[in-house]
Design a protein around this nucleic acid. Structure first.
Length: 524
RNA sequence: GCGCUCGUAGUUCAAUGGAUAGAACGGGAGCUUGCGGAGCUUCUAAUAGAGGUUCGAAUCCUCUCGAGCGCACCA
């Protein structure tokens, strides 16, 4: 990766020039083209440490860098107040094309994870109804994050936690409703579900039993929806009832906590000492009635994940579970987990007009309805565009309207165009690229080289919205190139070179869309 | 009351503390007798407010105003 190379060059130059590297060297991509392809503020940071003028330091470094990297840069310049700007040479850009074509779907892979194991809990949901548009945010971002981490060299397990414990409040409420003694979760969907399960329900002895029965059926629907319709492959469906309670994991967890004296009795209940591990207070894990709380089973579940040997555990929760974050972080420390426990809190998805989507209200917008309305590709793109910590306000009618002019089609159109050119040219496998030097060609080549950096950055900070943004930039660079440079022409050498570039562009665009789980059609 | 996440063009969203705040949609004006016009070019318009830190702030700190979500022996 060029960015890494430049960083190393700079560090070496700093050592040679006698400037000790204190803070990590930051190489950025300036927005403004005239500021180069890469730039660094290193000299400005070093200036305060060495009490020297930043420009003096920068000039000094520039000399060393140029000596160490003949041919890599078109030029390196020092600009006020002390930026060092790097302009990559054409030769270098051209030389990278064959590598992309050889790497194909592996292009963009970076070795950050080094094969370490990561677990992503995409969704933990009550099986009391269909998934709503809020769950969509968990599903899509979790799935895509998993793809990105995979690409960055982690071994990722996608997990879905089903809150189906028979002793839980929501399952009992569901049971009540099913038996006509309540109205929680009552929707048309549930009504028809009850209808279809009528014979079985007549034999049921308790509300809880009824709840469990219906929940299982609902869960089956949701599971099928996720796999078939959303195309998300969950590696591990974890039933709270079957995998945690039935296997006595809750019991064992409590026993362990008691032995370690991490819980104590007060007012008839058992409390866990989270306050000693960074939380504001302690919490009840076993009620006065002897019933364990959800917290205890969640702790047992997390212990289970830790025991399975994951180096990184990522939970993706809705903002309504935000209060749970401190608890679980404290628990992580309490259990002595040595990996990273990261909890991503997604802000809620609302409907235009601010109406909160609740399963308890009669009319909800299900994720299925939305996907049917705007299509899966558009839906995924739509969700991914937004940073996870901003509220998402979906205007359903607009989303639907946009489906015909959704930006995702812009990218897919570029891909289809590429395929059509390659098809027409019947490109042979040999490539040549040393004739590529039109500004639009250079721009496109630079875009292609950003991809591995994108993977690295995103695997680090989880800012998934970079992916759709990049897709658009890349597509725009291609469309521009297409507009300015005729690919298939009389000039055979040039044709060959441009076809190589087109092929490389196809690979990178396809790889990016793959990461987002969006299709890359050959024709539209 | 306390905590978390926010407040950016008309709208929906971007912007690892960087150099002229970017897209998309909307609205205005253009481009092609050629590889897909679902494209290209161009104009329009924004950092809620007030202080502070910094060579440099949409970004960090403080306060004000506004929005959403939490604050259970619910999950």
């Amino acid at each position: 990766m060029l960015r890494t190379e430049i960083r190393k060059l700079l560090e070496k130059a700093a050592i040679e020039a006698g400037f000790k590297v204190v803070s990590p060297v930051k190489i950025e991509r300036p927005e403004e083209e005239s500021h180069g392809d890469y730039s660094t503020n290193f000299a400005m940071q070093a200036a305060s440490n060495f009490k020297m003028a930043p420009k003096y330091i920068a000039d000094n470094l520039k000399g060393h860098i140029l000596n160490m990297s003949p041919g890599l840069f078109e030029k390196v310049e020092v600009v006020d107040p002390g930026f060092i700007n790097f302009f990559v040479s054409k030769k270098y850009l051209q030389g990278r094309i064959p590598g992309i074509i050889e790497d194909k779907d592996k292009y963009g892979r970076v070795e950050m994870g080094g094969g370490s194991k990561a677990n992503i809990e995409l969704i933990s949901a009550n099986p009391t109804g269909q998934l709503h548009i809020g769950n969509g945010r968990n599903a899509f971002s979790g799935d895509v994050l998993a793809n990105v981490l995979n690409k960055a060299g982690f071994k990722v397990t996608r997990e879905y936690f089903i809150n189906d414990a028979g002793n839980s409040k929501q399952i009992n409420e569901l049971g009540k409703t099913v038996l006509g003694k309540g109205e929680s979760y009552l929707t048309d969907y549930l009504r028809s579900k009850i209808e279809s399960l009528r014979p079985k329900l007549e034999k049921v002895k308790s509300e809880s039993e009824a709840g469990v029965l219906v929940a299982a059926s609902i869960q089956k629907d949701n599971q099928e929806f996720i796999e078939k319709k959303l195309g998300i492959k969950i590696d591990n469906w974890v039933s709270e009832e079957k995998a945690i309670y039935k296997k006595n994991k809750v019991e064992k967890m409590l026993k362990w906590l008691k032995e370690k004296q991490l819980v104590y009795q007060k007012e008839g209940a058992w409390w866990i000492k989270t306050s000693q591990f960074g939380d504001e207070k302690d919490w009840v894990v076993v009620r006065e009635t002897g019933q364990p709380t959800y917290l205890l089973s969640d702790i047992a579940y997390h212990k289970d994940k830790m025991d399975r040997g994951f180096d990184k555990i990522i939970d993706i929760w809705g903002a309504d579970h935000q209060g749970h974050v401190q608890k679980m972080k404290s628990v992580g420390r309490m259990l002595g987990y040595e990996g990273d426990l990261e909890i991503l809190v997604l802000q809620l998805v609302t409907l235009k007009g601010g109406e909160r989507l609740s399963k308890r209200k009669g009319e909800i917008v299900t994720l299925e309805k939305l996907v049917d309305e705007i299509g899966l590709d558009a839906a995924r793109f739509f969700y991914l565009q937004k940073s996870l910590d901003t509220h998402m306000d979906i205007d359903v009618s607009l989303a639907k309207e946009q489906s015909t002019k959704n930006p995702v089609f812009y990218a897919q159109y570029a891909h289809a165009r590429i395929c059509s050119i390659l098809e027409k040219a019947k490109a042979d496998k040999k490539f040549s690229q040393d004739l590529l030097n039109h500004p639009s060609e250079l721009k496109l080549m630079k875009e292609l080289l950003k991809f591995p950096e994108l993977v690295e950055d995103t695997a680090q900070d989880y800012q998934l919205q970079r992916l759709p943004a990049y897709t658009l930039e890349l597509s725009a660079a291609f469309h521009q190139f297409y507009h300015d440079c005729r690919v298939i022409s009389e000039n055979k050498k040039l044709t060959k070179a441009r076809l190589s570039l087109v092929l490389a562009a196809k690979i990178v665009l396809k790889n990016t869309l793959d990461l987002m789980g969006i299709s890359a059609p050959d024709k539209m």
